[in-house]
């Protein structure tokens, strides 16, 4: 068995909403008792509808928000940001890519600065070294050194997502949390970015946590699948297990609702329509 990069043990996240001088705070359980393990080089897909807690879980894994209770282990080391300060070494292990490529890049920052910032803040590299590494990374994600001095608004959505991927990889993390990375992209660009992610995973031996609502993408990219529903994990297994033999009724509903675009389904639908008319 290969090494385990990420492990969650009974992770819970509660939110207190309302709660002013006059109203008692209500507790919302965004993530309930989630446990999982993820091996190096694998992809775990977290599937669910909006508000099911998948993004909250992603933020906990990326050390943005603390968990309310439960244990989070990255590379075997437990971490709880509510108690401990995040060390630069911890920071370097896990990075995130967001859904909206238009919001995730600072409009006033040149691409070079975007890519250099993680190095500037976490390493002692000189400006020349940072520049060199950023240029190399741009080439790796399919852009060119000539993009170094441009601003984000000069790029298309797909290119921006490449830049966001490049920024996440600057610190050579072992774990990448991808929060709906292709949902905002056009179909053709989506394919390119998915290909890029697959290439980078091979090259850097990356572990992915892939958060998505799109089952066809999940089926393409995931090794393991976790289905969340109202903060709870209702289905967790390998891709083959989940897709060929879903256990929970919600998973089945989800599969039934996904549009089918194969010729057989279209033919069946048209036949049904004809019969009804």
């Amino acid at each position: 068995m290969s090494e385990i990069v990420l492990e969650g043990r009974n992770i819970v996240r509660d939110y207190h909403v309302g709660g002013s001088l006059f109203a008692k705070a209500k507790v919302v359980h965004a993530v309930k008792d989630v446990s999982f393990t993820l091996e190096k080089g694998k992809t775990l897909a977290i599937v669910g509808e909006s508000g099911c807690g998948k993004s909250t879980l992603g933020r906990i894994l990326t050390l943005i928000d603390p968990q309310t209770s439960g244990e989070l282990l990255i590379d075997g080391k437990p971490i709880n940001i509510a108690k401990d300060r995040i060390t630069p070494e911890m920071r370097r292990k896990v990075q995130i890519i967001f859904q909206n490529p238009y919001g995730s890049l600072n409009p006033r920052q040149k691409i070079g600065e975007v890519l250099g910032e993680p190095l500037l803040l976490n390493t002692n590299k000189t400006a020349a070294e940072r520049r060199e590494l950023a240029m190399q990374m741009l080439v790796k994600v399919g852009l060119g050194p000539e993009h170094y001095n441009r601003y984000p608004h000069m790029f298309s959505g797909g290119q921006r997502q490449r830049i966001a991927i490049a920024r996440a990889l600057m610190l050579s993390p072992s774990l990448l949390v991808l929060d709906e990375p292709v949902s905002a992209l056009d179909l053709s660009v989506q394919a390119q970015v998915l290909n890029l992610l697959a290439d980078l995973q091979d090259e850097f031996d990356l572990t992915y946590v892939f958060i998505s609502h799109d089952l066809s993408v999940v089926r393409y990219i995931a090794d393991e699948v976790m289905v969340m529903y109202y903060g709870e994990v209702v289905e967790y297994g390998t891709r083959e297990e989940v897709f060929s033999n879903p256990q929970h009724s919600y998973t089945k509903t989800l599969f039934a609702a996904t549009p089918k675009s194969d010729v057989e389904s279209i033919r069946a639908r048209l036949a049904r329509k004809k019969a009804a008319a």
Binding site: L194, N195, A198, I221, D262
Partner: peptide, 11 residues
Amino acid sequence: ALPENATGDRL
């Protein structure tokens, strides 16, 4: 380019 039409490893 649809992921469900993927043949092999690449789209």
